[in-house]
Amino acid sequence: MNDFIHVASISLPMLLQGLSLTVEISVLSIIFAFIGGLLVGYMCISPNKLVEGIARVFIKIFRCTPFMVQVYLAYYGLPSLGINVSAFGTGVLILSLYTSAYAAVILESGVKAIPKGQYEAAAALGMPRLKILCRIILPQTIRMIVPSLTGQFVQTVKDSSILSIITVAEMTMMTKEAIGITFSPLFVYICAGVLYWALNLVIEFISGRIEKKYNRVRI
């Protein structure tokens, strides 16, 4: 029993320290990815073929290569391009880009599912395109895609664990360090798993609230 308290007293503070960085990375990446997803998604539905093409290539690159490879590439690639960012910055950047590719696809498919008449009614009344997208199409799209977007953002939290490979001291890295000190992998991994799970429960809770707020009236 003494042993258990000893392990816990060493590993839990380390895990919580990692958790706070994991939260920070996740929140930043989710925000950036949402903005990035909007932008790339907007490019996908552009009437300009070149703009659309750029967005498609972006999506292909980030969806069709392993995330771990992207992380390493950014970690070693950015400095060789003369761009010096901290491991934390690199991690947030690459996780945001990776997630925004998925968010863009979710957004695009959502927009395509809105009946064309919704756009046409606004256009016929003289609304400019960007305004139609922001005020008529996007609000309806978001309501529809909250569940899939939530799934993607839960994935983002989990993917942030991969940033441990580039020395970002988030929870998975701290887990490994705590194991190195305490030699209790089972206990420490269980704690880490529970903390990840709790974090994602929070995200799902928030998402549930958003859905509830929007779906007062069923569309």
Partner: peptide, 20 residues
Amino acid sequence: AREIRKNVGMVFQQFNLWPH
């Protein structure tokens, strides 16, 4: 068209009201 649409309204078979 931007000018024309100021003066020409349209009513559709499917109404196309904005449900939100």
